[in-house]
């Protein structure tokens, strides 16, 4: 009964195929309409992490926000849309992604006294095309039980043969590890970075796999003793609502590396205004909002990230982990070195 009904629909549809095609395409045109006092956001950051910021922004300014979230390809979408693009603001994590937008000339320079005052120079593009909003440190975590406190101080220490078969990481080609490799290149040059990478790979306890949390879990389970992760995962595991993850967090010790030399490698989440933004004023207003106290503190509360604005104190939990020195290398450098870093990663098979 149902299937014959479906079939009848199909048969009638076949007769009206050209009309159907055309009307479906037109539907696309109708759906897209641009209202005043809106900000359209293309985000590489998941919606549920972004939503609290959007709610706070709308509450403060009355400006509505619309979001498309995707993990990859948004730059190509923006490029294909060209002048017709409805996008106002681009939000990303990882500096290399911002670099991709900058390379494709998809961002508009912004000169805003508020943004320039809130964000230190090494965390924004010299021409004002992008700004960092929060920073995250890539850290070493060690087993509280099986690795002595202070045994590892620098990322360079991971190359020591004494850790053979004891280190776990996610794949080298993941953006987080790629940026780490770029920072090693920036510090020591390509040849030394390759040597470091080879030694690190030789020390791995298992084929690189899983995400950052999975490394903590592997330490908890005793598969390895040392891992590399972004600092905020510790907060998420410790204060999330999953008891088993609290056990993983309790099994590890955080090592903010390179404190006696260049400082810990940090990456950023950031963003900029789209080149053909139809709501440019509102877009700049949104970026400014993200660098001010309310939003800057939200980064810590929601995702345990450090504020990029130095005048905003990190929240309670972050403060309790202590302060640390950051590598103040101009963050743009990491983006420039990303392709070389990926080539080394390919070569060493990380």
């Amino acid at each position: 009964m149902l299937s014959s009904c479906i079939f009848r629909t199909l048969r009638d549809g076949l007769r009206a195929l050209p009309v159907t095609l055309l009307s479906l395409l037109m539907l696309g045109g109708i759906v897209q309409s641009v209202h005043a006092s809106e900000v359209n956001i293309y985000s590489h950051r998941q919606q549920f992490l972004l939503q609290p910021f959007l709610d706070a922004f709308t509450a403060e300014t009355g400006i509505k926000t619309n979001v498309v979230y995707a993990s990859k390809g948004l730059a190509q979408r923006l490029q294909a849309e060209g002048e017709a693009s409805p996008a106002d603001v681009i939000l990303t994590v990882d500096i290399a992604r911002l670099g991709e937008y900058a390379d494709l000339d998809l961002l508009a320079p912004v000169s805003s006294d508020i943004l320039n005052a809130n964000i230190p120079a090494h965390l924004r593009a010299t021409d004002g095309r992008w700004f960092a909003f929060s920073t995250r440190a890539r850290i070493v975590v060690t087993s509280k039980e099986r690795v002595a406190d202070g045994a590892i101080k620098d990322f360079e220490d991971l190359a020591d043969p004494q850790w053979q078969g004891r280190i776990c990481t996610r794949k080298g080609s993941h953006v987080y590890n790629r940026a780490l490799m770029a920072s090693i290149i920036a510090a020591h040059g390509e040849a030394a970075a390759t040597e470091w990478g080879n030694a690190l790979v030789a020390n791995l306890a298992r084929r690189p796999q899983g995400n950052d949390r999975a490394q903590a879990k592997a330490i908890f389970e005793g598969q390895c003793d040392i891992g590399i992760m972004n600092h905020y995962y510790f907060g998420k595991m410790m204060f999330g609502d999953k008891p088993e993850q609290r056990d993983w967090a309790n099994a590890i010790r955080l090592v903010f590396t390179n404190q006696d030399n260049r400082g810990a490698h940090v990456n950023i989440s950031g963003g900029g205004v789209a080149k053909h933004s139809p709501n440019r004023d509102a877009a700049v207003q949104f970026l400014e909002f993200l660098t001010q106290t309310t939003a800057q503190q939200l980064y810590g509360e929601i995702n345990f990230e450090y504020p990029a604005n130095p005048s905003v104190e990190p929240g309670g939990v972050l403060q309790s982990w202590g302060s640390f020195n950051r590598d103040e290398l101009n963050i743009e450098k990491l983006s420039e070195l990303a392709p070389s870093a990926q080539m080394i990663i390919d070569r060493i098979g990380w």
Binding site: M26, G29, V31, Q32, V34, A84, S85, P86, P278
Partner: peptide
């Protein structure tokens, strides 16, 4: 995206509205 972008640009050229779009950003694409 590339294909739809060129369709949309032709569409915009025909209508004379640089922001007109047939496919991109809608359900159509």
């Amino acid at each position: 995206l590339i294909f739809a972008g060129s369709v949309d640009r032709s569409f915009a050229a025909v209508t004379g509205d640089g922001r007109a779009s047939l496919l991109l950003g809608g359900v159509g694409i």
